[in-house]
Design a protein around this nucleic acid. Structure first.
Length: 874
DNA sequence: GAACACACGC
DNA sequence: GACGTACGTGTGTTCG
């Protein structure tokens, strides 16, 4: 039997909005109504198991009822903005759930529901209506039940004929008579003054309907009541009419359209994640696991490699399960090409000279997913992999860095090119992760390789369409080889130095811990913000500066302000600083010294950041301390591998502001760089309208923060926080900045417009970032997208430039036969190990290559220094 | 194991 | 006019 569920969308949304606290996700988008609405949907789907379903929404402000009574719903408050912005999200969700939603011009959701429920009921369908509005009770019949929300949102009372009779003692069709007499304040329906629910019901039991009541008005007992009824006859009839649901509204939708199909789990999951409905994710996940069975592909398990298998081009998969691929076990290798589909067990491959020769020959073209991982993990097995010309992961990243995942299975499924199981489905996750029998692995790896072949063609043409193929081919692909070398090569560490620093730090920390406990008068865990907060703000009664959502904030900028209030504060700040050094840097670095090489091998993620920068993990070598002297000493542990070599550090001076000068074409800024001025001093002169010798250090510091803000795309609020000034003052500085650099202002405006028109912004080398939220009605999202539009071309172009310099440097060093090596990249600086006899060469070569990586309207400037350790390269 | 608060670099 | 405010990685704590 068919079962139709009809949901009053607006009513449920309102209920949910007012029943739940004003939740929002981390982006500041309000989600409470969507959340309540969604839990209601899930509950309906689980409990009612409908075959058909439709969510009806009100359309527009005016309805045919306004012709009867123009004050209809007149006193109702305007829908709060926080709710209005959630309504479109609900529609997105419904789409993902494959649930039909519907609205009709000039009619309310009630009318759609009434029309459809009557029609379905006549066909002997079972109908369930879900709403928060009692008016709907008039629709109850043998086949139609109405679930009304109680307090909260998912609690409902279900009304059938019997229930209405018990509760009101009337028939459903008399609900409108009841409304006619008593009115409805929320809809601004007048009714008869003085008549409430009790009186209305009493009258209806006696007379039946409003019409019959007025036919025999004489029989009404009570003089006052009789008068009121007589005076308000028109109101009563009109109110009844207003409360009557239209059962013949012009609904064009077919029942067939309301048939429920399975939700699109991918979309639902994506939406839940975005909305941060983590608890709800669990409720849909199980379904997601029910994946479609894949057809087995033909695989040849290779025991002896023969020449014909090693074709060019080939898609190749070097399967490594550990995220950290340095010296990780290779599960197996697959190769798929025009000749066949092969699974090669690891032992077979690494013991085959034929395979090694093929891998090492640049002329043999290889297509891979995550080339760097394959190169490094084979590298640890003394196999050199060359000739990689296409990396699926990088291509996917360049096409859209914001894609939720650049994992093989996800890319493949997203493009619907070829079905690949997720690694999680094949190997399991967490503790249960294990390698299944060879046949299953072989199938999985061959599918991946086959998908690479298909995706290569698709992604390549997308890259070309986007004018990104050059960026891919000439920059990112060669860069991934360079990064592979850097990772594989690693950086040497003076373990003794670290251990010694660790010891000094530990001593100091335990002394300080005692001192702090003494000052507090009680032992507690200083590392616990919760406990620390209680000590500072409850026990010691220090003034509360800022709160977090879980309690008192104890962050450095808060403690900074409490510095002179109590001597414990200073000590806590120092304790924090030293504790950070000890745990993150001393202990952290010691933990990741590689067993085999004794060096540190980071992994650069080349397909992660939204701007095109790299990131570095296990360990992160892009955030080694430098600002404070105590921390900077950590750099003493980073040393050259070879004797008589030095650490050579070269950094771009103000690369982002130079890029800004170039792309904005601002005359003032361009001249500042052409004349090699100190840019912060120059900005101070312009913002404060003073001459160079009048710039105080405070002015320069302020100007520096303003420049920082421009580069990183922070807001006036961000700037005010940085400088400890009001937002108004911060805004004034920004305005003055734009007055002095009108070209920059013009650029900022035009790039935002460009983002609105195209939906994305690009960097100098055509890196792309999509900004769909640039047209959002939500202020937060839109503003963030606007700042991102301004900032990404600056930061991203800077990333382009240094990446180009890296590729060029490797080329030059190879060509010149230099023994020096590139060790690290830290966003705007390159760290080399330079052997003694090459110092003079590199002093010339490095700045030359870096400064000429691209041609800008302003010169690029590189500073460098070198020394026995990274610390000394300052 | 996930969420949170915090801190480091650019 | 308010809204909540660069990115990324890693640590320790706390809670389910």
């Amino acid at each position: 039997m068919n079962k139709l569920v009809l949901v009053d969308g607006n009513s449920i949304a309102y209920r949910a909005f007012f029943a739940l606290p004003l939740l929002n996700n981390e982006k500041g988008v309000f989600t409470n109504a969507v959340y309540g609405f969604t839990t209601m949907l899930l509950k309906i789907l689980e409990e009612e198991k409908p075959t058909h379903m439709l969510v009806a929404f009100d359309a527009g402000k005016t309805t045919f009822r306004h012709n009867t009574y123009k004050e209809y719903k007149g006193k109702r408050q305007k829908t709060p903005g926080e709710l209005a912005e959630q309504l479109p999200v609900m529609r997105d969700l419904l789409k993902a759930f494959n649930i039909t939603y519907y609205e009709v011009e000039n009619y309310e959701a009630d009318d759609i529901i009434g029309t459809l429920s009557t029609k379905a009921s006549k066909s002997n369908w079972e109908v369930k209506i879900v709403s928060g509005d009692k008016d709907l009770l008039q629709l109850v019949s043998e086949n139609v039940k109405v679930a009304l929300t109680r307090k909260g949102i998912t609690n409902v009372d279900t009304y059938d004929l019997q229930m209405i009779d018990e509760k009101y003692g009337i028939k459903p069709e008399q609900i409108i008579d009841m409304k006619g007499l008593m009115g409805d304040a929320s809809d601004n329906i007048p009714g008869v003054p003085g008549v409430g629910e009790k009186t209305a019901l009493k009258l209806l039991k006696q007379f039946g309907t409003v019409e019959k009541l007025y036919e025999s008005l004489e029989d009404v007992s009570g003089k006052k009541l009789k008068e009121k009824l007589a005076e308000n006859k028109d109101n009563a009839f009109m109110s009844k009419k207003l409360a009557t649901i239209e059962l013949n509204s012009p609904v064009t939708i077919d029942f067939e359209d309301t048939k429920l199909t399975d939700p699109n789990n991918k979309e639902v999951t994506a939406l839940f994640k975005e909305l941060e409905f983590n608890s709800l994710l669990e409720r849909i996940d199980q379904e997601e696991e029910a994946e479609q069975p894949l057809v087995d592909v033909d695989v040849e398990v290779v025991h002896t490699i023969t020449e014909d298998m090693l074709y060019s081009p080939s898609a190749i998969v070097v399967e490594v399960l550990e995220e950290n691929y340095h010296n990780a076990e290779i599960v197996g290798i697959s190769i798929v090409n025009e000749v066949g589909s092969y699974y090669i067990p690891t032992e077979v491959a690494i013991n085959s000279d034929m395979f090694k020769k093929w891998a090492n020959d640049e002329k043999n073209e290889k297509w891979i997913f995550n080339a760097k991982q394959a190169i490094v993990s084979l590298g640890w097995n003394d196999i050199s992999l060359r000739g990689v010309t296409f990396d699926i992961q990088i291509a996917s990243y360049l096409i859209d860095p914001s894609a939720s995942s650049h994992e093989m299975a996800d890319i493949s499924n997203r493009k619907r090119s070829y079905t690949v199981k997720s690694d999680e489905a094949v190997y399991g996750k967490g503790k249960k992760r294990q390698v299944p029998e060879e046949e299953i692995v072989a199938q999985h790896l061959v599918r991946k390789a086959a998908a690479i072949n298909v995706l290569k063609e698709e992604l390549e043409s997308e890259l070309k369409e986007n004018e990104q193929f050059e960026l891919f081919k000439d920059l990112e692909m060669p860069l991934s080889i360079v990064l592979g070398h850097m990772e594989m090569n690693g950086i040497s560490i003076n373990k003794e130095e670290l251990l010694q620093m660790g010891e000094t730090l530990s001593d100091k920390l335990s002394t300080m811990e005692k001192e702090i406990h003494e000052l507090a008068g009680v032992e507690f865990n200083i590392n616990s913000p919760k406990q620390l907060g209680e000590i500072l703000f409850d026990k010691l009664q220090l003034p509360v500066v800022k709160k977090t959502k879980t309690g008192y904030s104890t962050s450095a900028d808060v403690l900074e302000q409490l510095r002179d209030k109590h001597e414990i504060v200073e000590k806590i700040l120092l304790y924090r600083q030293l504790g950070k050094l000890n745990s993150t840097y001393i202990e952290g670095l010691l933990k990741v010294i590689h067993q085999k090489s004794g060096k540190i091998h980071t992994i650069f993620n080349q397909a992660l950041t939204q701007t095109g920068r790299l990131s570095s993990t296990e360990p992160n070598l892009q955030n080694i301390p430098i600002r404070l002297e105590e921390g900077r000493k950590i750099r003493r542990a980073f040393v050259p591998e070879r004797e008589n070599a030095v650490i050579f550090a070269a950094d771009y001076s103000q690369i982002e502001l130079r890029v800004l000068a170039h792309i904005s074409n601002d005359e003032n800024l361009t001249n500042a760089f052409k004349e090699n001025m100190d840019v912060h001093t120059k900005t101070a002169m312009d913002v404060f309208h003073v001459s160079a010798d009048e710039v105080t250090s405070l002015m320069r510091r302020t100007a520096k923060a303003v420049n920082f803000g421009i580069v990183y795309g922070i807001s006036d609020y961000g700037l005010s926080q940085n400088l400890g000034i009001t937002r108004k003052e911060a805004k004034k500085f920004i305005d003055r900045y734009f007055d002095s650099y009108p070209g920059v202002k013009e650029y900022m405006e035009s790039i935002v417009e460009e983002a609105r028109v195209n939906g994305y912004v690009t960097t100098m080398l055509h890196r792309r970032r999509y900004l769909p939220e640039i047209t959002s009605r939500n202020f937060n999202l839109r503003s963030f997208a606007e700042r991102t539009a301004m900032n990404t071309p600056i930061q991203g172009s800077a990333a382009d430039i240094i990446k180009k310099a890296m590729v060029k440097m490797e080329e030059e060093m190879k060509e010149k036969g230099l023994k020096s090596t590139l060790l690290l990249q830290v966003h705007d600086e390159l760290i080399f190990e330079v052997v003694q006899e090459e110092i003079e060469t590199m002093k010339e070569l490095v700045p030359k290559v870096m400064e000429n990586a691209v041609n800008l309207a302003v010169p690029l400037k590189v500073d460098f220094s070198f020394g026995d350790t990274w610390y000394d390269a300052k």
